[in-house]
Write a protein that binds this DNA or RNA. Structure first.
Lengths: 118, 118
DNA sequence: GTCAAACTACGACGTCTCTCGTACAATGCT
DNA sequence: AGCATTGTACGAGAGACGTCGTAGTTTGAC
């Protein structure tokens, strides 16, 4: 328990077969959550909630991460006081091949077009 | 004007560049609307609103078609008393290459998996 | 001109969503 | 033990959403 181990707390996730397309689309239809997912996809590593510099309060951030988790888009694991977030790429790719990539490409494209992503 | 011509009434559509990914995802995150889009994609021809046998009232159907139109997913044109609906495939493909196909494939896959589509 | 068909407008209702603030819980460090 | 960090729970408020019913409009056919 002294190394960076996962702590006892666990969070409910839908299993792969329980992920619903409508829920995923709904999760991704919020600008804040789409932004989170894009940042998550950009880096390889998992990120803590607090590493996202979102223009909302902590409560709201928690809310968005929960929506993402409950829809099956991200996997969350506690490590110490932090909560690590990772895209459920494997599950999403298995369930809906090519969808996540198209979605991320579409988001990138739109960000480039609109200039809201450097 | 005696043949099957478009009548004077027109409906506001977002132009191609005005279509937002978040709005498209939101439009598609409703089961009724996803169903509409799948039916539209299945057949080549445009369909009238009343050709869809949805388990909701006419008012609600109108509402869903409006959401789809305003988000840029479908194009609607009056012809007589009917309103023809067509997927804006060209615009969506130009804006978000591959996205619509992935989305439709994902929906098909889920329908097959869950058995709610014959 | 009358009538039916297709769709719309408007208001209503209950629910869900996004946001916040405050108070609380779990963990790790000293 | 004490404290800082990280995230949660709960409640609230404003607004959006999906649904309906009724009344109305537009068009085409007779």
């Amino acid at each position: 328990m002294t190394d960076t181990a996962t702590t006892g707390r666990t969070l409910p996730h839908p299993e792969r077969e329980g992920i619903r397309l409508e829920s995923v689309l709904h999760a991704l239809s919020d600008p804040m959550r789409l932004r989170i997912v894009r940042e998550l996809a950009a880096g390889e590593a998992e990120l803590t909630c607090s590493q996202f510099d979102l223009p909302v309060t902590k409560s709201t951030t928690t809310h968005h991460f929960r929506v993402l988790r409950e829809s099956g888009v991200v996997r969350q694991v506690y490590r110490g006081t932090a909560k690590m977030n990772g895209l459920r790429r494997d599950d999403l790719d298995a369930l809906f091949p090519g969808l996540l990539d198209s979605l991320l490409a579409a988001a990138d494209r739109q960000a480039g077009r609109l200039g809201d992503a450097g």
